[in-house]
Design a protein around this nucleic acid. Structure first.
Length: 309
DNA sequence: GGTTGAA
DNA sequence: TTCAACCAACGCGGC
DNA sequence: GCCGCG
């Protein structure tokens, strides 16, 4: 059952009980998507509605927070250090950046933390691929598929299906979500053993091999000028240290208010588009089919990194 | 968007 | 009480 | 060492 947030339609501010915690929502009528007539209130209601499927993916992972004080078309402010005024129950993941310098990344451990961060003016969520108890060993390998002009989303789908087919031949199950804009993200859950660097090296090897063997469809070139037009980029560099991935079910700050949405391989075969998954359509979809990314949370669905080679 | 701290 | 300032930074390859 | 990239 989805979490419904009880905010009066026309309230400008509102106090909400979240278990023992009390949250104050502010500027609720602020238009975040003027063309869609969607407000900050709609963002809070969206995240509450999908919180059952979103929270397990965010749990124990550091986040980078992006604020959009002027809505989805406005400037974005990246906030790595949450200011001192945060509630005392918000949890952090301390990361030693260099000797004597410790950065504290916020973690969303419950609904209250999620909504407190959303109230800062946050639209999209980016999470670390590692959990805080072992910040050097990722939980998954990640490929970022992006169309290179004039390629379109249909080619990205085709590329995703090809990559899945190749991984299936290695008896590896992968999971896909729309990026929310023009691409698709592919996740392969791995045992937490190899260091980030090793995961990156393997991702590069896999991407380069696939691009070499299917050069009419794929490219893995890091340098933009070396990417052939009309191909699909299979990006591996997000596996490098210190990078974050956009979370599943994250809203995107684009004019359509799309959502980065897990999709099945069958859906990709029958031709879904990225634009059909939005702030309006995703909550009922999640109610209907649950979380297609749930296997990523189960220890039993993981592979040794070498299985991808 | 929210807060702090200076004017 | 008003108002400006602040709010990130790094790993990787290639050259 | 610096640039391009994300």
């Amino acid at each position: 059952m989805a979490t419904a947030l009880n905010i009066p339609q026309d309230a400008e501010t509102c106090e909400v009980k979240c278990g023992q915690k009390t949250l104050t929502f502010t500027n609720l009528q602020k238009l975040f998507w003027p063309q869609l007539n969607k407000t900050k209130r709609d963002v809070l209601i969206y995240y509450a509605a999908v919180s059952d499927v979103l929270l397990p993916h965010l749990r124990d992972r550091g986040l980078t927070v992006k604020k959009y004080p002027d809505g989805a078309d406005g400037k974005a402010i990246l906030v790595k250090k949450i200011p001192a005024y945060h509630p005392q129950w918000l949890k952090f993941c301390p990361v030693v950046r260099s000797p004597g310098i410790i950065l504290e990344f916020p973690m969303v451990q419950d609904l209250a933390s999620l909504l407190w961060i959303v109230n800062l003016g946050c639209i999209d969520f980016c999470q670390w691929p590692v959990r805080c108890d072992d910040i050097h060993r990722p939980d998954y390998v990640y490929f970022n598929l992006d169309p290179i002009f004039p390629a379109e989303f249909s080619q990205v789908r085709e590329a995703a299906l090809l990559i899945n087919h190749i991984l299936q031949k290695k008896n590896v199950n992968a999971y896909a979500k729309t990026s929310g804009s023009r691409g698709i993200h592919i996740y392969v859950p791995i045992y937490r053993k190899p260091y980030q660097r090793e995961v990156w090296r393997t991702a590069k090897k896999v991407a380069d091999t696939m691009a070499k063997e299917h050069s009419a469809l794929l490219t893995s070139a890091h340098i933009i000028s070396k990417r052939l037009p009309g191909r699909v980029l299979i990006g591996y560099n997000q596996n490098a240290g210190g990078r974050t991935f956009s979370s599943p079910y994250s809203l995107r700050a684009n004019p359509q208010a799309t959502v980065s949405t897990p999709v099945s391989w069958e859906e990709l075969e029958t031709g879904v588009t990225a634009s059909e998954f939005t702030v309006d359509s995703v909550p009922p979809r999640v109610e209907r089919i649950g979380d297609l990314f749930r296997p990523l949370l189960r220890p039993g669905s993981r592979y040794p990194l070498e299985a991808l080679l």
